[in-house]
Design a binder for these strands. Sequence first.
DNA 1: GCAAATTAATGATTTATTCAAG
DNA 2: CTTGAATAAATCATTAATTTGC
Lengths: 219, 219
Amino acid sequence: MESHSTAEDESGWKGSSGAHSSVSRWSPTKEQIDMLENFYKQGIRTPSTEQIQQITSRLRAYGYIEGKNVFYWFQNHKARQRQKLKQKQQSIAYCNCFLHASHPICQNVVCAPYCLQKSGFSFYPHQPKVLASVGISSRIETGSFGMLRICDGMQSEHPDYNYSTSNREALTLFPLHPTGILEEKTTHHSVDVTDKSFVSIAVDENGHLGNQPCFNFQY
Amino acid sequence: MESHSTAEDESGWKGSSGAHSSVSRWSPTKEQIDMLENFYKQGIRTPSTEQIQQITSRLRAYGYIEGKNVFYWFQNHKARQRQKLKQKQQSIAYCNCFLHASHPICQNVVCAPYCLQKSGFSFYPHQPKVLASVGISSRIETGSFGMLRICDGMQSEHPDYNYSTSNREALTLFPLHPTGILEEKTTHHSVDVTDKSFVSIAVDENGHLGNQPCFNFQY
DNA sequence: GCAAATTAATGATTTATTCAAG
DNA sequence: CTTGAATAAATCATTAATTTGC
């Protein structure tokens, strides 16, 4: 198990030869997933262009990977963590309906703020949520657009691992720029009565309701 | 009014000097908008990477522009045309409620399929909607991801118009690849009862309800 | 006329949804 | 069933129109 450097069997593409031409999708190696999850736990959610590049270069040591894969991974992981949490919230709130409510059943509407008042630790060991002292909005600070295309994965018929290990020292990936910090903005799920006639609860990604930590257990 | 070649006053960026450093967003010139709308009318909706590049090179003759700007423009324009159409549909259906319904007022719910049975021409002079003979789904065929980032606009602090006018002859932009063709897929607005407790109608971008052309006038 | 103040358009991001490979 | 990939919808934020008071 060499597991790095050049495109080999564990290249992340079915066609073994490393050419991967037109044969579907990236499948991450175990190491890559581990590392990605680590980054996520470090608090990275929507990595900037530079971050993506850096992460990509690193993970390339463990198999084939492109920038867009990293991008997508964070997109999906973030979204799916969120929905996982949401489900949890709802089921809990639902249970609370039984525990507290005088009405025996309230099926369609969740009786919002019955939360298990703070059990001590907050969930992700997020980077501290400092507010930027300068009055610049997060989306300017991050320098992230919303997509990649055009160049990365452009002529990517030939992946050619040409990212050169040059600036390998410069990778202070973990301390990180202020990028990941600002992007919480308490995702305004402010009582949106959108679809499914469910009243969703105003929480941010950590399960905080407003400023009040709500409940903190995790899968 | 020279209006081309090098970055000048009409460069699409406020800072006149063509450096555009840190001064937020692209504002297209009149010519650029015209051409983009032309492309749209030609049937382009979700241009492929190559198309974006080609369009970008062309429009650069009329002022500063990047690939991502083109990408965004199509995203937004498509979406906003769609919602414009939707509104129109709804207001018509709403009126039809008054014309046909026995109930004098049906405020929240639109009584779906009262459409002005076909008035002869379909709206956009779209490329013909041929079905791909190969059994490959549209999203694979197009080769388009959903985003760009990373490379284009990456170090774009220095736009440096280095796209070289080299392959200028190769631009057969209008005949176009089969790309734009497949992407209609009758945008499954299949009776989505999302927000606003409005029952929306199942139509594609041309105002066709199912296979039945619905109504065809435009602003 | 002409800025400040509002409002409308629209460029740019993020989030939600969908599709399909494995 | 999980999850990589892609698109569409929703949202944010800035610029352009425009209105308004002088």
